[in-house]
């Protein structure tokens, strides 16, 4: 007989537990679950950070709106893209000033305060 891959009993039991959870977590959401879509007052206290990324041969302008007290509370929006990096950088700066509540930039946070797990 060909030897088969085996897992120990504890791991198998964990695996079954996760399968159980699958049916609990994958249930249809209720209306209160979507409340965060409408609860956007926190956006009033956000600092805006411009971000340029290379995407499909163009420089894409993204704006990150991060809460000044809790930088991990943020949203990232893709605005537009340009083929010229200088033009992209200039427009990103203009867009940031346009979007920011505080145009002088006193409400500022560093992009390094936002940690996003890449795994």
């Amino acid at each position: 007989m060909k030897p088969h891959f085996r897992i120990d009993e504890v791991t198998y039991s964990h695996l079954l537990g996760r399968l159980n959870d699958l049916h609990v977590t994958d249930k249809r959401g209720t209306l209160p679950d979507f409340i965060f879509f409408h609860k956007d007052e926190w956006l009033a206290d956000t600092a805006v950070i411009e971000e340029l990324t290379r995407h499909k041969g163009e420089w894409q302008v993204n704006l990150v709106f991060a809460h000044t007290n809790n930088p991990m509370r943020f949203i990232r929006r893709q605005i537009t893209s340009y083929s010229c990096p200088r033009k992209a950088s200039l427009f990103a700066s203009l867009m940031r000033r346009l979007a920011a509540k505080d145009q002088r930039g006193t409400q500022a946070i560093s992009i390094n305060d936002i940690f996003v797990a890449q795994n």
Binding site: S13, L16, G17, N20
Partner: peptide, 14 residues
């Protein structure tokens, strides 16, 4: 046989 018992046990939990 052990897997069978574990499955039944986890089914009960579910």
């Amino acid at each position: 046989m052990n897997k069978m018992i574990l499955q039944i046990r986890n089914r009960i939990d579910f």
